[in-house]
Design a binder for these strands. Structure first.
Lengths: 112, 112
DNA sequence: AACACCTGTTAAAAATATATTACATATGTA
DNA sequence: TACATATGTAATATATTTTTAACAGGTGTT
């Protein structure tokens, strides 16, 4: 879930999803429609693909040119305190310790 | 919607939401339970509060100490290509131009 | 050959986000 | 007064993300 949220937390990537809704587009065309450079688009697509929100398929057009078509993976995610609490159970938060007690000198702000 | 997604795209903040589910907690207690320093927690809470996912209320405990209690704002958001496409309509993506044509020299990768 | 498209990648710069350290302040109790 | 708790902020360091610039190669058409 976190990976999906990270993938969606960017205006360009939301726009890419909106542009892909209901149709397949190849990378260069998508770059034009999204008004962004291809290297940047590749980066964003990679992130969306890693989150499995989009998929790609290389095809040869009738004139023999290679075209990489992207399309949306159907998804319908619900975000609520409950669904988040569930997802958190499977998360490993780095540097976590689970300290319950706390007998620290009041001058220190750090906790661990 | 973007602001909410950005607020949720972080493991610590998801954890904070999970910890706040169904109860009110004051900042110091939350810092202990989340195993993070208060300055860091403040930063994350500010982000959640800006997205209106949590709210806070200062109260005086029985012994006269000031306590800042945080609680969840109920929310239930749906994420689908459709809801995203709707949200994108209201987004202003910086440096957008809406270039439809493109007569650029093939050597350049930049598009605008 | 030169042009117009298409496919990608790598390296570095710029912008944000995250995390830490140090500080300042207040209340109640031993 | 000293200690333990609570409130909060400002400045800095670190890490990550986003963006740009430069490169390397393919096919088909004029």
């Amino acid at each position: 879930m976190l990976k999906i949220l990270e993938a969606l937390a960017n205006p360009h990537r939301l726009q890419i999803i909106a542009l892909l809704k209901g149709r397949r587009i190849h990378v260069s065309q998508l770059a034009r429609e999204a008004s962004m450079s291809r290297p940047l688009l590749y980066m964003h697509l990679k992130r969306l693909e890693a989150a499995k929100l989009v998929s790609s398929k290389m095809e040869l057009s009738s004139n023999g040119k290679a075209m990489n078509y992207y399309e949306l993976t159907p998804f319908d995610l619900r975000l609520s305190p409950e669904s988040i609490a569930e997802a958190v159970k499977t998360l490993t938060i780095k540097k976590s310790g689970g300290t319950t007690s706390g007998t620290s000198s009041a001058k220190e702000d750090t906790h661990e």
